[in-house]
Design a protein around this nucleic acid. Structure first.
Lengths: 255, 255
DNA sequence: CGTTACCTTGAATCTCCTCAATACACGTGG
DNA sequence: CCACGTGTATTGAGGAGATTCAAGGTAACG
């Protein structure tokens, strides 16, 4: 893990200015007005670089900061007394992290880095100024919250009503599509930084059963997944297993 | 069902003005400033009265209206091709209905009235004015969205990681606590307008298994539930079965 | 008094879980 | 270089938990 750090540590001292944010080039993100860009630039107070496996937020705590994910993957999860845990959703570049903490003064889930990550840091106390001065950005924040709700609803029905194979197909397709929107897919191949245990905790099955179901799914030839390399061979076939995935499409804000 | 209508039909012609909204008296709702109250009053364009069983929103559609629930119970649900369905969350008086439709231009779930309901109607097109002129109310909208997300997260872990008995205990306790906050509980008794089938579709079990598990739970004596009357006999005992329920507490907005 | 909606129960079956063991890749220290 | 621990993936066997099918019961309503 220490070795991995080297990959990013060279960039650490230089904070990416919002005007040159690499995410702004991605077409699914909406364009800012000059005023909005100026505000967001002043809103951003720094960057946080963390290793894979780090905890970004702990369930039940609070923080003076809000984050957006600039690069890397993370996931939100809740843990039960006896150690069972549930992954709630994944965070990919452009996603907002810690909204609940700002709004309720305590966050209902932990957030953990799945890969090395870079986070943009915003002081929570200025969120109010955003609402007062930039209705468009305020609307964006609501949009991002509503999107989380929408994704959780999709997870809830998938994970509660579908069989093992369908659940796995849903999660894989969902993540692939989100990653593709962000330009993280080359050809049909994606660096998918999940273990089977993460997947098991997402769909609510034991690791063993997840593994056995995955074995069945691989036989269909719809995808290949070895190590951290995921290749979607036949998207339609995978989609057919799911029933339907209603992606939250359209142009989206990213702060 | 037609008979039930009589109960409310006398009130239909008279639209409750926001200044005399009965919900405003309930202490968990935050107080409006005079300006906010005036804006909300002008924002509200009418009331919609529907019988139990009516569909308020259909999955995948849109509407020129936003609603808040003034009285009665409703639930949000998603349906699969083969008819399996998943209840996502319940709506009680003061809850916002149709936010997703306003934000994404299409709603990801249906909403159905569980009892006869009265809804306050707001024109969607004025939502933007709310964001521009009343940052406080805009923040409230975000708050309500984040609360939905928080509740869905609780459902997701409960329904995915806990056993049958725990799931049922969670839902019953959750609903009881929400209803109590709204003054719907007399003594320890609540009019709970759910069937066992609704409960089954909430927790993700078959009706048969839900019924059998419920039978076991009743033996503990923690609650009584016959017909639409629910009595919480021993709250601590019920809470102990759940593990924990983290209620989204504190003062809340209602538009 | 028949219909409808909801609740209850039993029996057979299948899905998924737990326990347990093995295999492989990787990095560490001897 | 090899021995070892650690994290991840894989496989088998037996059992608990949930499903489905099927039948009956009760209360409300017209």
């Amino acid at each position: 893990m220490a070795k991995k750090r080297n990959k990013t540590s060279g960039k650490v001292p230089v904070v990416t200015p919002c005007s040159r944010c690499p995410l702004r080039k991605i077409e699914i993100f909406r364009k800012f007005t000059a005023e909005e860009l100026a505000f967001v630039s002043s809103f951003k107070s720094g960057e946080l670089v963390l290793d894979a496996g780090s905890t970004i937020f702990s369930e039940g705590t609070n923080s003076p900061h809000l984050y957006t994910l600039l690069s890397g993957w993370a996931f939100k999860c809740k843990t039960l007394e006896d150690g069972r845990r549930q992954l709630l959703n994944f965070a990919l570049p452009g996603d907002f992290i810690g909204l609940q903490a700002s709004i309720f003064d305590t966050i209902g889930h932990s957030i953990e880095a799945l890969t090395d990550v870079v986070l943009c840091v915003f002081p929570r106390e200025k969120l109010w100024a955003l609402y007062e001065k930039h209705a468009g950005l305020a609307f964006d924040v609501t949009w991002l919250g509503a999107r989380e709700e929408s994704i959780l609803g999709d997870y809830l029905i998938t994970v509660n009503q579908r069989r093992a194979g369908e659940r796995i197909a849903f999660v894989l397709l969902h993540l692939f599509q989100r990653a593709r929107q962000l330009g993280l897919v080359r050809g049909n191949t994606l660096a998918l930084p999940l273990t089977q245990e993460h997947l098991a905790d997402t769909i609510g099955f034991s690791l063993v059963h997840t593994n056995k179901t995955l074995k069945q799914l691989r036989k269909t030839g719809a995808f290949k997944w070895t190590g951290s390399t995921f290749e979607l061979v036949d998207e339609k076939k995978l989609a057919a297993m799911v029933g339907h995935v209603a992606p939250v499409g359209g142009i989206r804000p990213f702060i």
